[in-house]
Design a protein around this nucleic acid. Structure first.
Lengths: 347, 347
DNA sequence: TTGAAAGCGCTAACAT
DNA sequence: ATGTTAGCGCTTTCAA
């Protein structure tokens, strides 16, 4: 069944049926309603490809995320999806598995599929990817990263500066012996930025970062436990462990609990992202709050605006809040050990 | 740049360029390579809509899930995505927010966008949705539910029977006083099936289910805590709480810990799904393992097969494994209270 | 093995 | 406000 059938049934031209479908307001109400009724009765569904070919718009946006199996990205995607959905756009979702070559291939595939706009995660990628997008005039936004020097559109935060805030907080409450469990930094500007921020903040306060153990681990609970377990086996245990995200922090925490290391009495732990679990596990995790849903929603808005106005989206910076919870306290050695009350209420 | 440009540059017809792109094996090798080189050099990307219109295939599959912001569905989607990706398909993702009307609208939208196949979650939905899919000859699979009477293709498990297994296990180790914290059953066959299973198993063993408190809550940690908190305030506390999924179980567990109720000594808790957290929180959660990634992957395979062979996919039943961990133990009142060792190792 | 030609179903000028 | 017409860029018979 085609638009032709609707036209014949209604006794009007396909062009007017098309108008009813796309610009109902410019069709005489009586006619419009008659057409709409026939469309509904016959269960006519327009052919998307034909529509796209004729109008050169697909009403589709693409997103490439490292993996959808992550509380953070899932929420970002959710925000994007809900936002663009309300404007009549569908979401074409791809994942790169944290591989830049794979990501570039996905972008090309989405372009071929004909998305009207695209959301990416992170900002450091081969120039050719950006060039491709720019050359085809496809609006896009990067997400989850922001730097003063970035030239691409996006909605993100400064991972370096945010990570520094977590480290400074621990320094402020007296910690001097640190360890880091970070995500894999290779090809991941977020992970790399966080690690850089942790170390820079420590160095600023005169901590010898060369002696600070840094373990890189995939973002899984078992990997985090293994990393923490290795840290606990060292002769000089850290009093504070900075983790690259909440999954790593949660795994580190569980490993401490299992091996009888008290948190935060014996060791403080910080996370990053503030996924649901961080507020609700026990003890609750001190972390940096990433408004993931809002980031996705904002990305969607920027893209919709760009499409409406034919402009390039801006780079929007988001400020993350440090949420102090129960996994952090002054180190026992600092003297004031047990005086600080535990914060463990649901946020 | 169009296929015409490649043709002109190579001095051959667009038809042959098309052949090189779609059926390289039927083109003379020398010519084929020459064309491929020009395609690569000029960075030519075929126009997806034109391709779809001419070939009436979009190389796209659709999926409608209740929400992507769920560890379970995220993993299912991940499995689907990775599987179909390897076969050259892109994934168009929609979410229904657990609303049947919204789901039906999303299916229509995906159909209009021209997906070649579709994955749905659950089996109970308006017949018209299935009729629409069938009438257009679009292969589809349902997921996450299986019943003996279902007539639609799918890959799922029996939620009733699985839930019964959890309840029977608690009965077997001596529990008689139960409560249920379940997901919202309305418009959700998985949640409804689980609740039915819990209650049926209890009734089978002579438990008066009318006296068994049942709380329905959205799948969030705070809602689960509220539900558990209400349960703990009752005069006659349950010795075992059956939860509709692991998020609810986790929330219930945290609320117990917060209010000094020992798990499993004072109350046993079971979950459903076996998301990562279940194995790694403390105490670890007894639950039913859903192989979510595999479910998505299997769904993808069924769809690819259906597309290749022009057949209707079968209904595949998956058996869930009950994973006994540390949130369950015989009730203290049963006498053998502290004798059973805690299982708390990482699975 | 390759080329010519006819659409795929729709939208958007343009004309009325 | 509605109809006529000419494609959108590609695939796929069919013919050579």
């Amino acid at each position: 069944m085609t638009i032709r059938d609707i036209a014949d049934r209604t006794g009007i031209s396909p062009a007017t049926v098309s108008r009813v479908l796309n610009h109902p307001d410019i069709v005489r109400p009586a006619l419009r309603e008659r057409v709409q009724k026939v469309v509904a009765d016959m269960g006519y569904v327009p052919h998307g490809a034909a529509r796209s070919l004729a109008s050169s718009r697909t009403r589709t946006m693409g997103a490439v995320v490292p993996t959808v199996d992550s509380a953070l990205f899932a929420r970002v995607v959710d925000g994007l999806q809900q936002t663009i959905h309300d404007a009549g756009y569908q979401l074409l979702l791809s994942s790169s598995n944290y591989g830049p070559a794979r990501e570039a291939a996905e972008v090309r595939a989405l372009l071929e599929r004909g998305v009207d706009a695209m959301m990416l995660v992170g900002i450091s990628r081969d120039r050719t990817v950006y060039d491709l997008l720019d050359s085809r005039g496809i609006p896009y936004v990067t997400t989850c990263s922001w730097t003063a020097t970035m030239t691409e559109p996006g909605v993100g935060w400064d991972n370096v500066e945010s990570a520094m805030r977590a480290a400074r907080y621990l320094l402020d409450i007296g910690h001097r012996r640190f360890a880091v469990i970070n995500g894999i930094t290779r090809d991941n500007d977020r992970a790399a930025g966080r690690l850089a921020g942790f170390l820079r903040a420590l160095a600023e306060r005169g901590i010898a970062t060369a002696q600070c153990p840094v373990v890189e681990a995939p973002y899984t609970i078992p990997d985090a436990r293994i990393a923490m377990s290795a840290l606990l086996r060292r002769s000089l245990q850290p009093t504070a462990v900075l983790c690259g995200n909440d999954i790593l922090a949660f795994g580190a925490l569980q490993e401490c609990l299992r091996s009888g290391v008290r948190v935060p009495e014996d060791v403080s732990i910080t996370g990053f992202d503030d996924i649901d679990m961080a507020a609700h596990c026990h003890p609750s995790i001190t972390t940096l709050r990433v408004p993931a849903f809002d980031v996705g929603a904002k990305a969607g808005e920027l893209l919709l605006d760009a499409l409406r106005n034919g402009t390039r989206p801006p780079a929007v910076r988001i400020e993350l809040e440090l949420v102090v919870r129960a996994t952090t306290a002054p180190p026992a050695a600092a003297g004031r050990s047990r005086s600080r009350p535990r914060k463990d209420s649901v946020q």
